[in-house]
Simulated scan of single mutants.
Amino acid sequence: MFPVNRLRRLRKNENIRRLVRENHLLVDDLIYPIFIEDGKDIKKEIPSMPGIFRWSLDRVNEELDEVANLGIPAVLLFGIPSHKDEVGSDTWSEEGIIQRAIRHIKKHYPNLYIITDVCFCEYTSHGHCGVLHDHDVDNDLTLENTKKQVVSHAKAGADMVAPSGMMDGVVKTIREALDEAGYKHIPIMAYSAKYASSYYGPFREAADSAPAFGDRRTYQMDPANRREALREVAIDIEEGADIVMVKPALSYLDIIRDLRNTFNVPIAAYNVSGEYSMIKAAGKLGWIDEKKVMLETLISMKRAGADIIITYFAKEVAKILKNEK
């Protein structure tokens, strides 16, 4: 009871605040997404994502040198191919852009952990996440192509695969395909609770992945649903997911907390492109303190229960943490 209990005593100065701080943002928490484009001499800034670029393989070391020097442990690769078709066949080609990128990174940065996004939207002529039938994605036909995609990633040297298409049964399909091909050691980070969100707009510009018609609400989750996320995650864990993900993160912190309270597995939060771009835009206009809002946003994800944060801010955060040491 006041005046005996004075909680401000533990807020008196920065040293005591550090001692009692409950959550910490570490460089070990971070995964940095990188866009690899087929072609040469490409360093193309994404207009809606200041500071984020599309890179060709002959220039991507400029980015990877910085990532490695900052101690960021992992990258998540997205490919922009020169050829697109109805089924996204570049995704399983041995000479596909991601397969070549994996081999390149493994050769030059053997200690960098490579995670590959497993989907089709960047590679299909229609921009949807699989094989179309009657103007909708056919779940089971898409799974057949997913098998080929993940095995080709593993063969190229990927350390982890991350299916993002929200196809039913995708984790089971991938686990069986990897195991049968001799890649039992490769973990799966499932985009288990991926919502049909408006926060993905800048990413679709970055990856040339906007759907040519319609939207993705028949396979991505309804933003109004909470309990459904628990079902999705439970199924993915049962099918063999090693890490589960919530995407987007900021507007779905309640989902992260629900998962943390329910499941004893690592949880990843994807701090998506729209979340990044809003902070960048408001910071540029002087409406917010960009650095402080960035850090507050990311620590909110840790506080909600995330173990891993996939974020375009990874390099900026790593620099701040490095300077604080």
Rank of each mutant, 00 (worst) to 15 (best):
F2H: 12
N5R: 12
R8S: 02
N13A: 08
N13D: 15
E14M: 12
E22N: 11
L26V: 07
P33G: 07
G39P: 04
K44V: 04
R59G: 00
N61E: 13
E62C: 13
D65R: 15
N69M: 12
K84V: 00
V87D: 11
S89D: 03
W92M: 04
E95D: 09
I98V: 15
A101Q: 01
H104Y: 08
I105L: 12
H108A: 10
V118F: 14
D136T: 15
D140F: 00
N145F: 14
T146E: 12
K148V: 03
A158S: 15
G165A: 15
M166S: 04
M166E: 01
V170E: 11
E176N: 11
L178I: 07
I186K: 01
I188W: 01
A196F: 07
S197Q: 11
S198C: 00
Y199W: 10
F203D: 02
A212V: 02
A224N: 11
L230G: 15
V246M: 06
L250T: 11
L250S: 10
R257C: 11
D258P: 09
R260I: 11
Y270D: 03
Y270K: 01
V272T: 13
E275Q: 09
E275N: 10
Y276N: 02
G286N: 12
W287Q: 08
K292L: 12
Y312D: 02
A314K: 10
I320C: 08
